[in-house]
Design a protein around this nucleic acid. Structure first.
Lengths: 197, 197
DNA sequence: AGCGATTGATAACAGCGTTGCGCTACCCTC
DNA sequence: GAGGGTAGCGCAACGCTGTTATCAATCGCT
């Protein structure tokens, strides 16, 4: 069989796109190199040429997920009031996660068994948290928030939203609990908890 | 080849134990029916007779995880001061999760691709949260906590600890961030946030 | 004691990620 | 313009996976 074209940057994107679709539609189990290659009209070997292996394909998805995530987070318009801004950022965080649940799962829970994110994980994750960190750092410096190391506050806030979102995505929340309303309430109380009394 | 014995309740336990060990040692990817059966000295078919399939084996692990978790949580001695008790429960929660990280992952993140917990999930999860829920319900009823639906507070507190623990288990936390000390600080601030002003 | 049901050992199936082989289309140099 | 090096990638095979049909052996029950 002949080869259609080489150095097909297009192919790379098509594989990445389709991989995202597959994983978004039916979860990580549904992402098989064979199916992926067949869908795109190539062979599994292409994935090895272009990415290095399945793990590296997932790694590319991981990066893409953070790109989208970071863009959404940085789009939030901040008011200057730290509590209000923490709420806004928290809401955007949830919306981002709900927009691509399976990408979120790749980023923050180990949803693809073979894949262990590289060292860049923490860095990339923290870079995404830049607006959050900035807001908190300022609030602490201004004496509006408690005099606690800003990292502690940042991680606490991040953990809070991550926890709620990931419970929601996993279906661990009770039936009668309507997330959207309670989420914001909880967010506001948590943020206000860091205010100096 | 003959068969050694039948109705071997012991075999069931050995399989379950070994499965837990395998998954705890090297993660969900390392749990293969063939290796499991070989280690225990039986064949893969036994898993199908005794559990129904790999999914159901994982489901049994899931249940076992909640059993251990619930026992640890209910062992916490409560002081009556809601903030203090929320901290104690939060600390116990983290210790439980760190004791069996992979079981925790089965319970709360979808670490085994095929496995979708049944309807009993939410129920079993919520049952585990009984001490937490009790403490909060009382604090709200007594007017010590803000007048917010207790479920909202419960889910918020649960999400908070789950989020921090799962970020920690996934290695998403910054290097310099020392969890054990910051965790308790954050826990206390969060709990105090629910106090009536 | 003997019958029926259940356990589980064997072996086969389909599908998976991965890899060696080799063809082919491109780029570079002459 | 012609020839050689290189990289993309289709094909086929390997060893692994979960699952299942077949069937022998053993149990509980009458």
């Amino acid at each position: 069989m002949p080869r259609p074209r080489t150095h097909d940057e297009n192919l790379r994107l098509k594989l990445l796109d389709r991989a995202g679709e597959l994983i978004s539609a039916d979860g990580p189990k549904a992402l098989s190199l064979r199916k992926l290659a067949a869908d795109v009209g190539t062979s599994t070997t292409a994935v090895y040429s272009l990415f290095g292996g399945k793990t590296d394909l997932v790694s590319a998805l991981f990066t893409e997920g953070f790109r989208r995530f970071g863009r959404r987070m940085s789009k939030v318009t901040l008011s200057g009031d730290p509590v209000e801004d923490l709420v806004r950022l928290g809401v955007a965080y949830r919306e981002s996660a709900l927009a691509d649940p399976h990408l979120y799962a790749i980023m923050f829970t180990k949803s693809v068994p073979g894949f262990e994110p590289a060292e860049e994980t923490s860095e990339q994750a923290r870079a995404t948290m830049a607006p959050l960190e900035g807001t908190i750092r300022k609030a602490v410096a201004d004496g509006v928030f408690l005099d606690v190391p800003p990292e502690v506050v940042t991680v606490a806030c991040w953990g809070f939203v991550h926890g709620l979102v990931s419970l929601e995505l996993n279906g661990n929340l009770p039936e009668q609990y309507t997330v959207s309303t309670a989420y914001e309430t909880a967010l506001r109380v948590n943020a206000a908890g860091w205010l100096r009394r």
